[in-house]
Design a binder for these strands. Structure first.
Lengths: 348, 348
DNA sequence: CTGTTAGCGCATTCAC
DNA sequence: GTGAATGCGCTAACAG
């Protein structure tokens, strides 16, 4: 008779349940439950019984059915995470940070990467709520977002990350856009640039708005006027298109601040496409320091936001909120850092 | 009295259940269940009753509890996906491909990105099995992998992707390593290179082994002998370290084939670090065409594997296997393509 | 020290 | 055309 572990109940061919273990061990189901949940001491189970149960469980390859447990306890140990695009370097790094914290705390996570498709996002979020996710990490907030309202109405804890929404009751983890933008502009001013333009992100995304308004403010304090164009998406193509337009309209431009690194890459393409050089003729500063931005040609001067930290902070905040739903909402800012590399230089 | 939708049962403050809807609508729970599952016609419910139930459900903000449903039906509509690192460009793109297919088919997915930590991986996989994931996408197979055995023993359908394992009963979606390597070597031979070295990936990963053995075979057919070093991980640092060693030992080397693009980046660093130029003195060919490899300096010549396709094929295969557990296992190869860019050139 | 009981929310078979 | 009854697998309150 084989005594090696096996995951299948021999009679039914299905996974072993508590009842199977109980029957084999000659005890009641609840006794097995207690032992397997480490409550043997609470239930004052004899060491012999405990040992026997453990052995039977191992022999039958028992594995707790967390679906059944969740139905009973109301806790799933699952959270949902919603991002625009896993394949985006910046977001992937955030996901890694969040995933590490969640795994550490015994949580699994459902990932939805929905692009900019609102319907698809709504249905995936709905699936997460239906799956009784204990909380949501929400990285796709936009102005006029209606999905967010649904989450809040469902009473599910949520932490916004990366992008904010005007909702005072929610915790958020965001890049410090104002400070970051100031760092970038100060850098360009110190290089004696006088005509600086901005390639902004989508206008309904909080970071884009914050970076753009700070861009204008900081320049006007220096007595300068900045020009801005807003992209429809955070892509290289959009960066190319807008920079081309800006350089046509203001040929005296010697510096471009982009709202993120992908837009910055497109800006560099556009500069070259017009027969100018970066940074010799036009400097470019990006935002985020996404992976490999030091390896592009030229290496990108950028405002670094620790994406890993952003993700792990958001996850921690969510877990705290789950543990204590009365916790006051909090907004945490991730400090930016200026990284001077090769795409920025003195005014020609 | 408010009639707008709300997700909370007013009495308990908890989400509305079938029972709440049934009570409000003055019908039995099972009737509601039938209507909300589109079985109204099967149960021959009157249109009036159906309409009333639908309205009440909407008014109470009813949302199906998929945990309870899963316990009852045995189907969770969840699959698990295990990858070494979300923040790796190559894997993120695979994840996107898989995620799109899964979302399309109404599945959610639990993501585990576990690094190379076997214990952490084992516990996350165990959590997925406990959560009754209907199937697993497994991208971390290694020689001597013990977690895989556990999955198979649990009877959970699994599709290996990217990395293979010697397990005849499993479906897999893999890059065509042999064909890809042949393409790379043919390219280098056509450029008249005679001394070619290979920076291999970890030796317990199938792709590394396949690429390395094909490297040796193809070269020996041309009457040449290739030299190989195996990395411990797929990182730039390892590429740098091994290339440095290889160039020291065989200074006559004029071409490096790397087992992936990250190793190739490290190789280029090493070449420069020795005062040589790429591709003028030493050519480099990578593998995968990870995002942005066309933007590095120099733009990387590489063997492109469609990562998105690989992910979506794996997901499709998994869903087919879930639908039909008796489906015969199948191995699908993703066709490679040579992309000649700037990191390879004629022998100096 | 352990067993009994009840029920989480849902789908489904059977009954009328 | 609809209701009643059952149980998925588990935990927890209570009983003894």
């Amino acid at each position: 008779m084989p005594v090696e572990p096996m995951d299948q109940n021999r009679a039914t061919g299905r996974p072993a349940t508590l009842r199977d273990v109980a029957r084999e061990a000659g005890v009641h189901v609840s006794t097995v439950s207690r032992v397997l949940n480490g409550q043997a001491s609470v239930g004052r189970i004899t060491p012999e019984t405990e040992e026997r149960i453990q052995q039977v469980a191992r022999r039958l390859g028992y594995r707790r059915n967390t679906v059944a447990r969740a139905l009973r306890t109301g806790r799933t140990s699952v959270v949902g995470m919603v991002i625009p695009d896993v394949a985006n370097l910046y977001q992937a790094e955030i996901t890694r940070g969040a995933g590490d914290v969640l795994a550490e705390m015994g949580y699994s996570f459902l990932l939805a990467s929905t692009g900019e498709d609102q319907d698809r996002m709504a249905s995936q979020v709905s699936a997460m709520l239906g799956a009784q996710a204990e909380g949501l990490l929400y990285g796709v907030a936009r102005e006029g977002d209606h999905v967010l309202g649904e989450i809040v109405a469902a009473g599910t804890p949520v932490v916004l990350f990366n992008r904010s929404a005007a909702h005072p009751k929610l915790s958020q983890v965001l890049p410090d856009d104002r400070r970051g933008t100031a760092l970038a502009i100060e850098h360009l001013l110190s290089l004696d640039h006088r005509k600086i333009v901005h390639v902004g992100g989508p206008e309904d995304v909080s970071s884009s708005v914050n970076r753009a308004s700070m861009f204008t403010e900081t320049l006007s304090e220096a007595g300068l006027k900045g020009e801005i164009r807003f992209a429809r998406r955070h892509t290289e193509e959009e960066g190319f298109r807008l920079t081309t337009e800006l350089l046509r309209e203001w040929p005296e431009t010697t510096a471009v601040l982009a709202a993120n690194d992908r837009l910055a890459l497109g800006a560099i393409d556009a500069i070259r496409n017009q027969g100018r050089a970066c940074p010799a003729d036009v400097s470019v500063v990006g935002f985020n320091d996404m992976p490999y931005s030091d390896r592009f040609q030229p290496a990108l001067t950028t405002i670094r936001i620790s994406q890993y930290d952003l993700g792990s902070m958001a996850a921690s905040l969510l877990l705290e909120t789950i543990a204590d739903p009365d916790r006051l909402p909090e907004t945490k800012l991730v400090a930016p850092e200026l990284l001077v590399r090769d795409s920025s230089g003195p005014r020609p």
